[in-house]
């Protein structure tokens, strides 16, 4: 056969020459989506606000005179006092509120990030495998998910607290291991429809193995729903964490989190309002912005609008 066969050396040379010709880069779907996201004002502002909150939480503490666990015996339950360096006041134990908010935000972001990553990882793998293989594999895997759904969530959390009680990050790895159920269902549904698309069949005809098809052809096409659902999972986990902290199951003193701060602030909201307002503002703006980003991503990734 003439044509493609043989003379690979000559062809390689040809390819090299073309390499210098520099073929223009196409616009990938992700770049397209990014462009649309940036056009969305609300989402763009939200991204900046979230970035600011992240900086505030992780870099902010280095610029403060007080650390989150240091007690200022001269300033207990004091409103904001710029001379003493308590820019957001102090709590009942004389600890600087701003430092505590920063540390709390840090903690909330870390646990939310960790739990979301874990849940995305497990959910995507589990859902894609169940959806792709289908049939009995799918039936067994999804029944397991149904059973997990039916078991009381809080029971698992309490068991996790017993196991990981002293380590909030590990605790939220555990919570991530529980949060993946919905993600798995979403991914499975998407996989079921993607695997019927012709490009998957084309990959099969090209000799690709099932794992190659799942991770090279199906998973990248799940980006849209996964990213959207993940941005909605982050606030959900922040709220879960707040709820657990409120119950006293979350982060341990002197470390704190946004939920813990709010739970301490709310009973004294009338007398020491700064203890509630600070963490509440951060939490609300964080949740609001994440929701806006999620919405923006959904619009940007939805191919129908093109």
């Amino acid at each position: 056969m003439a044509g493609i066969t043989g003379k690979d050396a000559v062809l390689t040379e040809y390819a090299r020459k073309l390499e210098t010709l520099d073929a223009p880069k196409g616009r990938s779907l992700t770049q397209d989506a990014m462009r649309r996201l940036v056009r969305n004002k609300a989402a763009l502002v939200s991204i900046f606000v979230v970035l600011f909150i992240v900086l505030f939480a992780f870099v902010g503490p280095y610029f403060l005179p007080w650390t989150y666990d240091k007690i200022d015996w001269s300033g207990i339950r004091k409103p904001p006092n710029f001379e003493a360096g308590h820019f957001a006041g102090t709590d009942q134990n004389g600890r600087d509120m701003l430092a505590r908010i920063m540390q709390g935000t840090q903690m909330s972001l870390i646990v939310a990030g960790v739990a979301t990553l874990v849940s995305v990882f497990i959910g995507v793998c589990y859902g894609a495998i169940a959806g792709y293989f289908g049939g009995k594999v799918d039936a067994v895997m999804m029944r397991f998910v149904d059973i997990m759904y039916a078991l009381p969530y809080i029971l698992f959390v309490i068991i996790l607290v017993v196991i990981f009680g002293r380590n909030p990050v590990l605790l939220f790895v555990g919570i991530g291991c529980l949060e993946w159920l919905t993600m798995a269902r979403i991914v499975r549904g998407q996989t079921l429809s993607i695997k019927e698309r012709e490009f998957v069949e084309a990959a099969k005809a090209g000799g690709a193995k099932p794992w190659t098809i799942i991770f090279r052809h199906i998973v990248p096409n799940l980006t849209g729903p996964v990213v959207i659902y993940a941005t909605l999972t982050i606030p959900e986990i922040i709220l879960t964490e707040s709820f657990l902290s409120y119950l006293g199951l979350g982060v341990q003193e002197p470390q704190t989190s946004l939920g813990t701060l709010i739970s301490f602030g709310s009973p004294v909201a009338e007398t020491l309002p700064w203890m509630l307002i600070g963490p509440a503002v951060v939490l609300v703006s964080l949740l609001l912005c994440l929701t806006y980003i999620g919405d923006g991503l959904r619009d940007a990734l939805d191919p129908k609008d093109r």
Binding site: S28, L29, R197, E198, F199, E201, P220, N221, T223
Partner: peptide, 9 residues
């Protein structure tokens, strides 16, 4: 539909 939208030509 027969081309994976996430891959280049």
């Amino acid at each position: 539909a027969s081309l994976n939208p996430r891959m280049t030509v």
